[in-house]
């Protein structure tokens, strides 16, 4: 019987010198909460998941929703056994197949057929089992003769169809799918949804992360809402999607507002900087050309705006500098 049990799961994503960002950057409260810092305040890691707990029984279809960067993909990778937890317990009963990233788990230089073999072997199937399923995979993926070509020649949609066909053909007990399923065209999505449903009817567990409300409501019953690496809410998929949608609208409005002020502030800062450089340039020209006008000891001081000479130079220099900068 398949079963998933996650308890108090924490994942810290280390950066190892990939980030040199120092302290003092403007941050929202959620960012502050999620960044792991060393003593000097440099970001050394991200708290990708914090205290996540949930369970899923056989036949369950669990939707995963959340903003970009909320920890959906990391959670899927933990379920797939790719990341081990920093804290907490992950228990999974049943054969797991995960399709987390469309570009992964394929040998791009090898043909589609070769990749069917590789993926089959990688999920612990024998050669005979793979040959038994080959025709079915070819039919479901609708790739035809393309299966003899290297996977690197495929479009994103074709890759996705092949990956999905392989993953579901070998009937895993736990199927983990990320966002990219929605990359398929409508016809394929319909087919895929039907296949997922049949799969879950055979008492498998489906975990599906997506931003598409229709895909999620069509496929899943229960939903888990991840927010900044924590479980924000859990419940029937329609309720969660509604709450999530409202929250996202509210946040987006706030973000837009903040973005506006930030843009305005950046503009003001740039204007100020430009004025300063222009003033400096004007002064330099002034020193050079009209050194007789400037008294000793006043070198390097700000030009006096009341001085008619300075005003004249500034008036000439500003368009000139603007022209040079262009």
């Amino acid at each position: 019987m398949s079963r998933i049990r996650i308890e108090n799961l924490c994942i810290n994503y280390p950066l190892y010198g990939r980030s040199r960002a120092a302290a003092g950057l403007t941050e929202t409260e959620t960012d502050l909460d999620r960044m792991l810092r060393d003593k000097k305040g440099r970001v050394i890691g991200v708290r990708a998941l914090q205290g996540v707990s949930f369970e899923a029984e056989a036949g369950e279809r669990l939707a995963l929703v959340g903003e970009n960067g909320s920890g959906k993909t990391t959670l899927l990778q933990v379920l797939a056994g790719i990341y081990t937890p920093d804290e907490g317990v992950v228990e999974i009963e049943g054969r797991t197949t995960a399709l987390v990233n469309i570009n992964l788990g394929m040998n791009a230089e090898a043909s589609g057929h070769r990749n069917i073999t590789l993926r089959g072997l990688a999920t612990g199937r024998t050669r005979e089992e793979i040959e038994e399923r080959r025709a079915e995979i070819a039919a479901f993926s609708e790739l035809g003769d393309f299966l003899d070509l290297p996977v690197e020649t495929y479009s994103a949609g074709m890759r996705m169809r092949l990956s999905f066909a392989i993953a579901t053909a070998f009937e895993p007990d736990v199927l983990i799918l990320d966002e990219w399923l929605s990359a398929g065209d409508t016809a394929f999505r319909k087919k895929a949804t039907g296949r997922m449903r049949r799969f879950v009817d055979q008492a498998g567990i489906l975990v599906l992360a997506s931003h598409s409300p229709t895909l999620l409501t069509d496929t899943c019953k229960r939903a888990l809402w991840l927010d900044a690496g924590r479980v924000r809410a859990e419940g029937p998929v329609s309720d969660i999607l509604k709450a999530y949608g409202q929250e996202m609208e509210r946040r987006q409005a706030g973000r837009d507002e903040r973005a506006q002020t930030e843009i305005a502030a950046a503009h003001a800062a740039r204007e100020a900087a430009r004025a300063a450089t222009e003033a400096r340039a004007a002064r330099r020209m002034g020193v050079h050309k009209r050194s007789d006008q400037i008294q000793d000891g006043e070198d390097g001081a700000e030009p006096d705006p009341a001085n008619p000479v300075t005003r004249l130079i500034t008036r000439v220099m500003r368009p000139l500098m603007r022209f040079i900068r262009r």
Partner: peptide
């Protein structure tokens, strides 16, 4: 992912 790993338990350490 394979037959031998049908039940997985992952804990830190």
């Amino acid at each position: 992912m394979n037959r031998t790993l049908t039940a997985r338990r992952a804990t830190p350490g």
